[in-house]
């Protein structure tokens, strides 16, 4: 794994201390190779964003992070703050969910793109502006010269997310981490952003980690998919396998809760209940309370391991066959 891919190994994140400690990520491992796309799926609070933020040292201080995050053979969690600053933005590009709040409202588009280029590539202000103009063109923003001088509030949501992507791509990263980048956008814009990222990936061969709560978005984009629930990986498989033969009851629930054109709404199956509180996790399977199967006496008392249930297919369940 010395190729410029990205992997997290046994990553655990604990927020807060003592009785209020919340174990929001528990022993998560996954990897993505250069040129490939990993989809990370889960509902809010499943720990999917926490995993990538923690791996890049982007969580605020009271977070305790253990495990490792490997990029090009180096463990990001062992780097000093300065070393990490040299990797973020340079080799790891980030796109966040809400382009309304993720851009600085007080700085021009130009400044927000060029500051990273100046920092990492040592470019002059003028050279950085030229790169920024090219980047805006690349991400499909018309009239880039005028947009460079614009402030975020003068742009539409889709435009802003394109600017975010331009920032993330500005230093030619090895890995692009996209944390729900299309959730705040309308559907047509969403499709454009997906195309844009795919196209850039084909051209540069960067690895992409695409985080989403929407299996459909990830399905059209990813090679492999990781499903997270309650801070753990509950299933991991190539995207076709996951759709054709989901093994974990939670994944099956997610697939059933997805609306399909032509199917009546009352045929949608919701997953009853709410995700577990990370401050008071159950002793058994983390999905036990909401599980429609509960097909094994160990479910309530024992945490199932992530076991291989097929070719490159892993699931954290005692009863992968029960439908």
């Amino acid at each position: 794994m010395n190729a410029p891919g990205f992997a997290v190994r046994d990553l655990t994140v604990v927020l807060g201390r003592g009785k209020r400690a919340a174990r929001v990520v528990r022993g998560v491992s996954w990897s993505v190779e250069a040129g490939a796309t990993l989809g990370v799926v889960g509902e809010s609070g499943s720990g999917k964003s926490m995993t990538v933020l923690a791996s890049a040292g982007l969580l605020p201080p009271p977070a305790a992070v253990t495990g490792s995050a490997l990029l090009g053979g180096r463990d990001l969690l062992k780097l000093s703050r300065r070393e990490l600053e040299g990797i973020r933005g340079r080799r790891l590009g980030f796109v966040f969910q809400d382009p309304m709040t993720s851009l600085n409202p007080l700085l021009t588009v130009e400044r927000q793109i060029t500051e990273g280029i100046e920092e990492h590539l040592g470019a002059t202000r003028r050279a950085a502006r030229d790169s920024a103009r090219v980047l805006l063109e690349t991400v499909g923003i018309p009239d880039p010269d005028r947009r460079l001088d614009a402030y975020p509030h003068q742009l539409s949501g889709g435009m802003r997310q394109r600017v975010m992507i331009a920032i993330a791509l500005s230093c030619g990263p090895d890995v692009l981490i996209a944390d729900e980048p299309t959730t705040a956008l309308d559907v047509t814009t969403q499709a454009q952003i997906l195309d844009l990222v795919r196209e850039r990936q084909e051209r540069t061969g960067m690895a992409v980690v695409w985080i989403s709560h929407d299996l459909a978005v990830v399905g059209g984009l990813a090679d492999d998919v990781v499903v997270m629930y309650g801070g753990q990986v509950v299933e991991q498989a190539p995207v076709e396998t996951l759709h054709s033969a989901p093994a974990h009851p939670y994944t099956r629930g997610l697939l059933g809760a997805r609306p399909v054109l032509g199917r009546r709404r009352d045929q949608l199956t919701a997953i009853p209940g709410t995700p577990p509180d990370p401050r008071a996790l159950p002793s058994g399977c983390v999905f036990f309370d909401r599980c429609p199967v509960k097909g094994d006496p160990r479910c309530e008392t024992q945490v199932p391991d992530l076991v291989e249930v097929g070719r490159r297919h892993f699931a954290r369940t005692f009863c992968p066959e029960d439908q």
Binding site: P60, E85, G89, H120
Partner: peptide
Amino acid sequence: GSEHARTARAKGLRRRIVRSRHVVRN
């Protein structure tokens, strides 16, 4: 704690620059 400050950190800007240009200014 704002999201744009997180973006600034994600860009790999030095802490001093994140604080002066993105945090205190805002």
